[in-house]
Design a protein around this nucleic acid. Structure first.
Lengths: 414, 414
DNA sequence: ACAACTTAGTTCGTGTTCCGATTTAACTTC
DNA sequence: GAAGTTAAATCGGAACACGAACTAAGTTGT
């Protein structure tokens, strides 16, 4: 128990350097005095650490503020253009690769469709690696002579990421069992790799730039074709003892209930995921036109539209299916509130964003009825702000987070 | 985000002092060299810090090890007899108060029955305060001239403990809403108070001295008349944003299901708690003798015995009720494994310990069938080792934990 | 126009702290 | 009793944050 190592006097500097850099990253254009006040460090210490960061070209003086009666403040900023990161979103149907600068301004992007194998929803690890390699080639790298350093590649995948130090990916729904993705990808790149669950990376993006800003205990619910969740405790993703925490999709919502694509019965995903909503509607209203939809997104939009048509048979069927979805989502959110006592619950994913418009009030009410009063009153249930395409953005935050943590003195080739 | 304060060079000393003291507490009779090796601190630093702790009379030299060819090791120990703590278990039917030394060796105990009010299961806050005061008087305090310092009183209560800095207790089942227990108790004692949920304190006891030793991510499930849980992440209780995390009893196990004593329908407690088991058996086998049992414990024992009688009507009813209980417990454990990815799940509480003998294999199997393969394979489902009476012991760990954290330099009257 | 303010940032001396090297302490073994 | 061995203490050096004093770079008032 409590086997943390003893602290060194140099750890103090490391910790303070990282603290100042993080503050500067999330509060751009601060002066040294701002930093001093925000962190509690003395002005002398801030001066000293900032000088070091400027010396290392991690921070730059970016201007000065108009004076109001004294010496003007010199504004500091992270030297965002000098560092770049790459974010990858491995989806079941396509791979998206984006290149960003340190400030996560997008510089280039590529989208590679996945070859659909014999069985739908199954993709070979080799195809994913090839797709990532192709995407990396398209987005390119900065000119090696420019002095720009690429910090690493963050990758969001639709499965459980386990194993240390080499990441291994499990995903029952697409048939991956202990795929050594990190080792496979190392064949196509030398850059540091940061692999995480896609729900986690999307949640991370919302924490940094979306509905989770400044909140520490947050649950991010990703509702797409299937569903997943990311548990953010104390501002960072909680991973559990073997990095698979937050597997929300396959908790049992109804014993002996509907068959799920994972093979079990009564999984929550079989009531909330878009695939299941579409299937349930097709069962309830066989004559409906949803089957002819071009995509899942299109099909879900048609169901939402049908639900608004008062008198038709299909309207009744659509309303029943959506009501069942809202009921299960609300109950599950109530349960999560009791278990985790979060400050905020964020609903995201492409289906979640589509559904939230019509369903959110009902979901809130069901959650209220099924949660204890006290924790419910502290939990805000909100909709994600970033859209479903932020998985790559969130993945790119992973190398950035490492950089901020090490304050640029990590393993560098310098 | 990340608004931690800057670190000081004196924080290093504080942190190392606490680290060494904690190590010494959990690994008694270590030498300075043992400490150095275990913490990574240099021998010089260990010497210096230990000298300080000895000077402060927090640590003593307690002997020497036989030499094996060189200077013998001097053994160090925490000066346990110089410090005492008090643990209180506030139950629905009785209050237990125990006095311990720092090593949590019991020195005195008292058990005060609670006056049963008009409605069963409702107890007035005033009665609790009076009961605690009476218990404190019985266990007494050390002689003021002895130099023994009492670090504080830890209190485990059956409800949600919220509020800072003054603890306020909510409990829907016994009718407490925002009871300012800390303020009320301050009327009867001047000692520092540490109030927490009883499931948390019992879980804490298991973490320090029972089935959770050395494990960091653990869920402790308390099954008594009602049920509760304690979520231990990274070795300490996770409390959520407003300290009510782990409210496992009133998550919804079946939508529109059995009526729970909290007023909602389908709560897990209505399927797993001893009160519900007894009620369900009484419904299924009205002729049974369980109703005449002297206590809930007695009633549950009779149901377990009935279930073992092959051919009787009552045996079938008992088996059906217990099977339903095992099913819901297993499903819920499977869900918790998916969500939290714990290293260990510990079943405790008086009813949990009684049930585990017969039900555990079935519960494990159900959990396996309802959890994802990967996280299930990492989670051990075990039975608590400390018995149900360790709530007071666990409560007493709270002031001890604070003492170890501050290494004896906290707010002292010295 | 120039002194008097005002605010931002730097420099410097001081006190803590950990650490490596060396020394001292306390044994055993030959 | 000399040599060897292991444990612990001591000492000087380096890293660090901090407070106080100081410098820099403006505005304001007369």
């Amino acid at each position: 128990m409590a086997e943390r190592r003893g602290r060194n006097v140099r750890d103090v500097r490391r910790s303070n350097r990282s603290l100042l850099l993080r503050h500067l990253y999330f509060h751009p254009s601060s002066s040294r005095l701002d930093l001093s006040r925000a962190t509690g460090l003395s002005a002398a210490s801030v001066s000293s650490v900032v000088a070091e960061l400027i010396e290392a070209q991690v921070v730059i003086e970016s201007g000065a503020l108009e004076s109001d009666g004294g010496r003007p403040r010199i504004l500091l900023d992270v030297a965002a253009p000098r560092f770049q990161v790459i974010g990858v979103d491995v989806g079941e149907t396509r791979i998206r690769v984006e290149r960003f600068d340190l400030g996560l301004t997008e510089l280039a992007r590529a989208e590679i469709p996945m070859p659909q194998g014999r069985e739908p929803g199954r993709c070979a690890p080799g195809d994913v690696v090839a797709g990532v390699a192709e995407g990396l080639a398209v987005v390119g790298l900065p000119d090696p002579d420019s002095g720009v350093r690429v910090l690493g590649i963050g990758i969001g995948v639709p499965g459980i990421v386990a194993g240390r130090p080499e990441s291994v990916v499990h995903c029952q729904t697409i048939g991956w069992d202990a795929v050594p993705l990190e080792a496979l990808l190392r064949e196509v790149t030398d850059l540091p790799l940061f692999i995480d669950n896609g729900a986690n990376t999307l949640g991370q993006a919302e924490m940094w730039f979306g509905a989770g800003r400044g909140v520490s205990d947050t649950l991010f619910l990703l509702i797409g074709s299937g569903i997943g969740a990311s548990v953010m405790l104390d501002g960072v993703a909680y991973r559990g003892s073997s990095t698979s925490a937050g597997e929300w999709g396959h908790i049992t919502a109804a014993i002996g209930g509907r068959l799920c694509r994972c093979g079990a019965r009564g999984c929550l995903e079989a009531y909330i995921g878009a695939e299941s909503i579409i299937a349930r509607y097709a069962e309830a209203a066989p004559a409906a036109d949803a089957a002819s939809a071009a995509s899942e997104e299109d099909a879900l939009l048609r169901i939402l539209a049908a639900a608004r048509r008062e008198e038709s048979e299909q309207g009744r069927a659509a309303r029943a299916v959506l009501a069942e979805t809202a009921l299960h989502l609300g109950v599950s959110i109530g349960n999560l509130i009791n278990l985790f006592n979060p400050e905020r619950i964020i609903i995201g994913g492409w289906a979640g964003l589509l559904l939230a418009g019509d369903l959110l009030p009902g979901v809130r009410e069901v959650a209220r009825a099924h949660a204890l009063r006290h924790p419910f009153s502290k939990a805000a249930i909100e909709v994600g702000r970033l859209g479903p395409d932020a998985v790559a953005l969130g993945a790119a935050t992973l190398p950035v987070a490492r950089f901020l943590h090490t304050a640029g003195v990590g393993p560098r080739s310098h």
